[in-house]
Design a protein around this nucleic acid. Structure first.
Lengths: 232, 232, 232, 232
DNA sequence: GATGAATGAGGCTTCATTCAT
DNA sequence: AATGAATGAAGCCTCATTCAT
């Protein structure tokens, strides 16, 4: 049936229950990516997971529950790795550029997750809040460091986040290549008040590739440090 | 029963067919705003328009047809008025700031239309292309005038547009007040390379309010001048 | 719109009412032939006739009424011409062979009428009865003349008629060519007791072609003579 | 609620799925017989089967799927028993007469199946082809044996088949009694070239009654021998 | 825990027919 | 006589969800 997905790979050591659940989640991501949350049907997900439809409700309260759990897991994985990749960096300019670029790269390294994230971020307030908290930390750090000359508040962070998601969408659609992250990061830095040349230099500095790992389940050290609450 | 909407108001002089059709369109906008295109059902729209479900199909081929027609009308009205409001302005910095602010104000002056626009712009490629063409004209003008120091291409315009839509969403949700347009315009000008003080000054300069009229159906002079094609 | 059909041609001299009615009947035959009685919709017929749907009900009580009237007219025209073509022939063997061949040729000379007849003969008892009466007359004549050696009764006539309709269907489908009438006529004569060589000779004797005329509205002299009742 | 039909009777030992499916098929045959394929609605069939409409789609893809499956089952049962009843007979004259008589008797022993067959044979090309293959084998055998003096080809077989179906229709309508099979068989033999007295003698020879069994699912030996393909 | 048949509400759409104009 | 908008029942089908096994 389905090529074995990341959740299943991760759950291979666990009990049958966990493995079935993982199959459903992998299948769900794949179907969501193809059709969106609304259009994806429980039956189709179950079929893709190679279980019967009734099994779905053994593991999830309803479709919304599944969506939330998938989003939580994806967001958690992405956030964890993002966190880890940036744990050594103190400079806010560097952090902002790297976070944007890394996030887009991670999300595109598993396009189905990328699409799911794109769709989830508007549909799931919990995810949205978490993302905002994530961004806010670095933006405020930049202000404290004197690098950013704008005021950081909710609306600004929303706009900032929308820029990232627009770039991600462009890349997932194929309208942009791997440079998408650098482009949007440069624009963001300019917007935040970083000098044009610096913005360009930082945003386009080569970074080593980083693919999304899937066995990372814990929230990163930074999230703990910042007191960002778990998603559910 | 629906409070009488703009389409009905406009069609009051016309024949019965046009009035019923207008009722359906008003109802559709209202339902779309509340639930999105996917979740809106033809039955619900018909009920909101106070006609039986069969009547819907007297006027529209199917739901997609309705969506397209509603979007065309809304986009046409908004674009026409935007155009008109900016016809005298030559300076690209002024134009960009004003277009962003005016658009948000117009869209919020009729929140249901605002929501519909927000949803339509991702779902309807025709609308997306039209918006891109609209934005591109002013952005390229700014580059020609030496005011903007970035390269204008598709991805950049997408990001630029996403900023506007994020601000619009914030305002429609109530997270931002009337200053939303100025905020995002300022951020955009900074991003484009306008000096911070200039950006602030231009973006926050008081403008007289401008509500969305509905009887405006023609494309504006600027669209004609730019050769932007009609939506359908 | 529609190529002008036979009913319209016939009604050209008449009043507007008759012409509109004729347009509807021509359109109906055409739609019936394409889709069958059930699947043909009043709207489609009206559209094909280039009138609005409401007009349909000015002329016909309902769809069944239209079907009946169309069938009556078609059957009347066909029967009239058949009658005329055979009025001089006394020999039952000749009559039976000629009637079968002529009927198939006539029905195929206007394939839409042919299909309509094919469909109508099972659906409309009145038509069925009329056809049975038509056939019975010649079959009984043959028995009286000593040419046919079977007993003529309802079931036999039904079977006899089914043979004709099967051949007609084959020809309308394109599975048989112009020889269809001769083939089935030969089989019929054999079945009735005519010697094989005679059957072959009579059934395949060349006859001059005869196309369906449309301006013939009255019942033929033979129908009157036989006391066959009008269809409605 | 439906009187328990043959499919249900046969499925009584099987699982719930098979029993529900059988209920739907029994109900379908009953509704098809009453209204024809086109006019029968899924809702009505479901109601007759005493399940809710959604259940229909658990078992059948759509109405056409059901029709095809019902036709396959009915045709298979009838063909199997016909086959079996004739397996010992070598003489083509005997075979043709017996096949016609047996078929009509079988179809009338379960009138709803008879009606369904009558309607299916025109609507389902697969069934038609199978029937043609069935008939052709015996007709060609008769030619080889020198008993039949006509040429066997598609149109002839169509006409031959139409005769059987006309007799079946007459019997189902009540216009004919149990002698229907003998009557049409006699006519067929005459048509094929069998001497009138022989035709009469063979067609009317008493045969022991044979009711349609329902547990017969396999294709008969003759079908296998002739290489007639299974219906699906 | 898993199954999978069954449910029934609800979605989209067609269509014969009516009726005010 | 003709129009044509409106009706509303009915058709087909999907789908989230339940529950007996």
């Amino acid at each position: 049936m389905l090529a074995e997905g990341p959740f299943v790979r991760e759950a291979r050591q666990l009990g049958k229950r966990e493995r079935t659940r993982a199959r459903l989640m992998d299948a769900a991501v794949s179907v969501f990516a193809r059709e969106g949350f609304e259009a994806a049907s429980v039956n189709e997900i179950a079929r893709a997971a190679d279980v019967v439809n009734g099994t779905f409700y053994v593991h999830f309260k309803d479709k919304d529950d599944l969506i939330a759990q998938v989003a939580v897991r994806i967001a958690g994985d992405v956030a964890g790795q993002l966190d880890e990749a940036m744990s050594q960096i103190e400079d806010a300019v560097e952090r902002v550029a790297l976070a944007t670029r890394r996030f887009i790269d991670l999300a595109c390294s598993r396009p189905e997750w990328g699409w799911a994230l794109l769709r989830a971020v508007w549909a799931l307030p919990a995810l949205h809040h978490r993302a905002v908290a994530f961004l806010r930390a670095d933006l405020e750090r930049g202000v404290r460091q004197g690098a950013f000359t704008i005021q950081i508040d909710g609306p600004t962070i929303d706009i900032f986040g929308a820029m990232i998601m627009a770039a991600l969408a462009g890349r997932l659609r194929g309208a942009q290549g791997p440079e998408a992250g650098s482009r949007v990061a440069e624009l963001q830095l300019r917007m935040l008040g970083v000098a044009a040349e610096t913005a360009r230099a930082v945003a386009w500095r080569p970074i080593e590739p980083l693919a999304l790992r899937v066995d990372e389940r814990s929230r990163g050290p930074r999230e703990r440090a910042l007191g960002i609450p778990p998603l559910i």
